[in-house]
Amino acid sequence: MGSSRRLRPIQLVMMQLLIAVIIIWCLAPFYWTVVTSLKQANAIFYNPTTYLPNPVDMTSWRIVVTLPRFQGALINSTIIASSVTVVSLSLGSLCAYAIARLRFPGKNIVLALVLAVSMFPGIAIISPLYLQFRDWDLINNKLALILPGVTFTLPVCIWTLTAFFRDLPRELEEAAYVDGASRIQTFTQVIGPLAAPGVFTTAILLFIASWNEFLFARTFMSKVEQLTAPVAVAQFEGSDIAAATPWGEISAAAIATTIPLVILVLIFQRRIVAGLTAGAVKG
């Protein structure tokens, strides 16, 4: 810890105040969206607006949760994000292990490639990918999002896993070699179980990154039933398109899409922070 010195009372009060400010800063917009989603339809249009939903009204939520295209979007996002996570982890863990533990020519080239992809603007390749996927008949097909999803999550995957693999004790692998295990056996039976926590942490990061992808999802999916959750929220017009902007339903949709991520954050906060910083600080 940077400094565990005892603070003077005034400093302590200042600290508490700053902590409160940080928490309010982070959660206030979130609070407001929840409040808006719980207001009665006409209460949203009160001027001045009210800080609390009075009375609490679940209509917006009921509408959003039962909207088939919104349910479909949540399912699509779950399928795509899970597939991307699994494929990216399989490719990335092999690559990360080689980088962390083996000597081979061209390692720096691989690292440079990975670094380059992490800086890649999706917009730079959107036009050729679109033409390519159109020719392959992949528009409105989940593969059109899974393929680029894997490539663009690989850098985070490789960095985070490389950092985890490096922290594993080398002696166990050497012992396995001495016992006559092959390289592949060592990888699957010794390294695999040891690295499980690191792999799991990486999986969470990849899932969140993939769930949040917007550019490709908006471009390669045009059918309503194929939209992902972020695109559905971005284009959300409510149940009745003729009505005034349904801010309540929009807010409910926004919160509903966020709930899976907030649950992940609540359960795995320590791991997420560790994973998020492992690659960036050491790499």
Partner: peptide, 27 residues
Amino acid sequence: RVAILVPWALTTVVSARMWQVIYHATY
């Protein structure tokens, strides 16, 4: 830590929708 991870984990377009509601000129 949880509070600080919420804006980070949030989808950008979802946060854009939230800010639309917050910044509204009259409501």
